[in-house]
């Protein structure tokens, strides 16, 4: 019965048609690039910073203690609160980068820290006895051990970055973003647009996740095969 009410739930064929229509609009790619570049930038900054701080926190527990209040706050405060608070000091166009960063950082940081902590003690003792410099220990002992932790963290965090980033765009009504399109489709009851853009978000998110994980796996394989 619901399928007879296109305003509420559009038949899948209509969504596909609308999606095809969207793809052919010049605005579509601009909108996609706008959101993609900002959300991925937030993810990339979080990834790098979380890896660096995770490794350093594993080496210096004091740093972990200092970061703990920030990490626990980011983990527990609802994303909507962060989005609204951030709008006081950030423009809506930059919001998705910041929110994506904020949501991804604790996931990767916690996993890296856990990986560092659980590194094989026997290998670390070997490094101590042979006086292997810390940089080399990081690359040859810690990094291979971090591999599964990084894959698991990135797999979760990539999806989160898209969900939170688009939520920030919707709440901030960032001009030229996917979030703005979602907001407009809600205002004008364009359910087929809402679902078509949702499909786009899911597809881009999944494709980027696959690509990023593939690149990371290749980088690890090349490093280990040296």
């Amino acid at each position: 019965m619901l399928l007879d009410l296109p305003l509420l739930l559009v038949p899948p064929l209509e969504v596909v048609k609308r999606l095809w229509g969207l793809v052919r609009e010049s605005d579509f790619w601009r909108t996609l690039l706008f959101s993609f570049s900002r959300i991925v930038l937030g993810f990339a900054i979080a990834f790098v910073l979380a890896c660096v701080l995770g490794v350093l926190s594993g080496k210096w527990p004091l740093l972990e203690t200092l970061l703990w209040p920030y990490v626990i706050t980011i983990k527990t405060v609802p994303v909507a609160s962060f989005i609204i608070l951030s709008l006081f000091f950030l423009s809506a166009r930059r919001l998705s980068t910041f929110i994506s960063f904020l949501m991804v950082f604790p996931v990767i940081y916690s996993n890296v820290l856990e990986g560092i902590r659980s590194t094989d003690k026997e290998l670390l003792e070997m490094g101590q006895v042979f006086r292997i410099p810390w940089g080399r220990r990081l690359l040859y002992i810690y990094l291979p051990h971090l591999k599964p932790f990084l894959f698991s963290a990135c797999s979760v965090a990539l999806g989160m970055s898209w969900k939170s980033g688009v939520a920030a765009e919707v709440i901030g009504v960032a001009s030229g973003s996917i979030g703005e399109k979602l907001y407009e489709s809600k205002i004008y009851f364009m359910t087929e647009d809402l679902l078509a853009w949702t499909v786009v978000i899911v597809l881009v998110s999944v494709l980027f996740e696959k690509l990023f994980l593939r690149l990371m796996r290749t980088a690890f394989d090349l490093w280990e095969a040296q």
């Binding site: 026997e122 290998l123 003792e125 070997m126 006895v129 042979f130 040859y140 002992i141 291979p144 280990e224 040296q226």
Partner: peptide, 12 residues
């Protein structure tokens, strides 16, 4: 040292 275990980095 040669440890009781091999203590090698398995991926390399």
């Amino acid at each position: 040292a040669v440890f009781q275990e091999d203590r090698l980095c398995p991926a390399f």
